[in-house]
Nucleic acid binder design. Structure first.
Length: 504
RNA sequence: GAGGCUGUAGCUCAGUCGGUAGAGCAACGGACUUUUAAUCCGUUGGUCGCGGGUUCGAGUCCCGCCGGCCUCACCA
């Protein structure tokens, strides 16, 4: 049957869509719902592929050819390749577990189903009932017996082999990236496994998960520029949270002895391969612990997460490797400082001279701030790790308990891996008077307005009621996922990273 | 915020010295019951990111703007 040729056989985007809408119309004409319906009892394609061993070839009897028999299977998936060849169509369909070939023969499926197959386009979603067998070339294939139309795709999919390569399009149209770029869906599913593993590990150790507020009157717990929003009924400005810390510590006061929150925080800062304005953080607090308990917990969380992804403890990282075999190295801040600069940690004059030579203006700066600058420049980038950097100068740690033996040292560690800060933990400061003093000191240099915004008096009041000694740990989930999935940019582990709105 | 690179068909990409805008995939028509990026024959498809300038003539050179990527800055 000849149908009239389209008036404009052009291939503009509009014309490509028109061709698909024409097939959609034909489906409706045939009484088929192009948007499909419930489709029960189909099996994942990976599970279907695993049934290959059930294919049997009976021994040939006299004069008769042995006909292999395979299991009946039912699959649902998106058409990613099509090879129509006269009265036989070959398809590749893909679901979130894998890809399999489908053979549609006119005689095998019948005229009605074959007519349906004429309406298939790349990108359509179909259901297939058939027998799982191998072709004569050995390709595992579902030999279709019945076809079910499940959803029409009106838009033209990307190039069928190269997929999307433009990084902008990959992020803006993540749905296409997930379908067509090798490894993307797997990476995000792996992220979910990591997150699940972390929750499991914590549950196994008696921690409870809570949800704190994300709208804060005071953006405390970290030093970062917050996003500002406004509540109309109360007529007050509010901040999106920049950390989880201060509310979780209130819960420690309230007797929640092992508590954590995993959630989004927001920082109004620059965007690059390691920073997205919203990112996922976990903060964990354990009453009667300290920063050493948190080191053990950090190792356990990471090792369990790696195992949950089905990998060994030595992971690829670009053209390098990361060996996560515990225990991770532990070195003090001053040890590392001396190793990488040749200067003793208490050599204020020498450190100042070095910082100046690096172009850092040291005038009116606290010696520890100068030291911290040198540390970040000379040491952090050189840390391959995983390594716990422990015992920070206390003056740069306003929320951390000081060492009983030396008030100039704070009981804090940061975990570094390939120059990236992955975790940060303290023995938590629970002395309300010292906490208030440190807040005040920290804010001394800031304008009145800002310093008022940061001084969280209610938090101090909470501490006055007695917060048990505790260890606290924060982990950047996105960065951890980067390391465990060999992703060099944070945009590859965040489904919808922030982009400028598309103007159309 | 600064510098560098980049933007061409729905997608992936060529486009030389400034001289009529190209290919593959996809699409449309035809052949094909064992294909594997199927193949073969034919057809169609462009606001060269946007705006200005130079020039007889601009995808190409210059200026501005808008995206994106990289580096730096910012970032407890």
């Amino acid at each position: 049957m000849n149908k009239p040729a389209p008036e404009q056989p052009a291939t503009t985007e509009a014309a490509l869509e028109a061709a698909r809408r024409e097939k959609l119309r034909k489906l409706q004409e045939m009484g088929v719902d192009p948007w499909g319906a419930r489709f029960d009892d189909h099996q994942a394609i990976a599970a279907i592929r695993a049934r290959e061993s059930e294919i049997v070839t009976p021994s040939a009897s006299e004069g008769e050819q042995a006909e292999p028999r395979g299991p009946k299977v039912r699959a649902a998936g998106r058409i990613v390749l099509r090879r129509p060849s006269g009265k036989v169509h070959w398809l590749q369909i893909r679901d979130w577990s894998g890809t399999v070939q489908v053979m549609i023969g006119k005689n095998q499926v019948g005229d009605e189903n074959f007519e349906l197959a004429q309406c298939f386009d790349l990108g359509d979603i179909i259901g297939v009932d058939g027998e799982l067998k191998k072709t004569r070339t050995g390709e595992l294939t579902i030999f279709a017996e019945k076809l079910t139309f499940l959803t029409k795709s009106i838009a033209t999919p990307p190039e069928k082999h190269k997929g999307l390569t433009d990084p902008e399009l990959r992020q803006r149209r993540r749905y296409l990236d997930l379908i067509h770029t090798e490894g993307v869906l797997e990476r995000f599913l792996r992220r979910t496994k990591i997150v699940q593993s972390i929750r499991n590990t914590l549950a196994g150790r008696g921690f409870v998960e809570v949800e704190g507020p994300t709208l804060h009157a005071i953006a405390g717990g970290a030093a970062a520029r917050p996003f500002i929003t406004h509540h109309n009924a109360l007529d007050i400005d509010l901040f999106l949270r920049i950390a989880l810390e201060l509310h979780l510590k209130r819960l420690l006061v309230g007797g929640v002895e092992r508590v954590y929150e995993m959630g989004r925080v927001y920082r109004n800062e620059g965007i690059d391969a390691r920073h997205n304005p919203e990112f996922t953080m976990i903060e964990i607090y354990q009453a009667y612990g300290n920063y050493e308990s948190m080191m053990d917990l950090t190792e356990a969380l990471i090792v369990d997460a790696i195992r949950a992804t089905g990998q060994g403890l030595v992971l690829p990282w670009g053209d390098k490797e990361i060996d996560f075999t515990p225990p991770f190295a532990r070195k003090t801040y001053d040890q590392l400082f001396e190793e990488h600069t040749g200067l003793k940690g208490d050599d204020d004059v020498g450190i100042r001279k070095l910082a100046e030579s690096m172009g850092f203006s040291t005038a009116n700066k606290h010696p520890d701030v100068v030291k911290s600058f040198v540390f970040e420049e000379k040491v952090e980038d050189a840390l391959v790790g995983p390594i716990f950097v422990i015992d920070y100068p206390s003056s740069i740690c306003p929320l951390t308990k000081r060492k009983a033996t030396d008030p100039n040292i704070a009981e804090r560690f940061e975990l570094f891996i390939h120059g990236m800060e992955v975790a940060n933990a303290y023995t938590e400061l629970n002395d309300p008077d010292l906490q208030e003093e440190l807040f005040t000191k920290q804010l001394a240099g800031l304008p009145e307005e800002e310093s008022m915004a940061k001084m969280d008096h209610d938090f101090i009041r909470a501490l006055r009621n007695g917060m048990p000694p505790a260890g606290g740990l924060g982990i950047g989930i996105d960065r951890l996922v980067m390391l465990l999935t060999n992703s060099q940019t944070i945009r590859d582990v965040i489904l919808f990273p922030l982009l400028r709105p598309d103007v159309e």
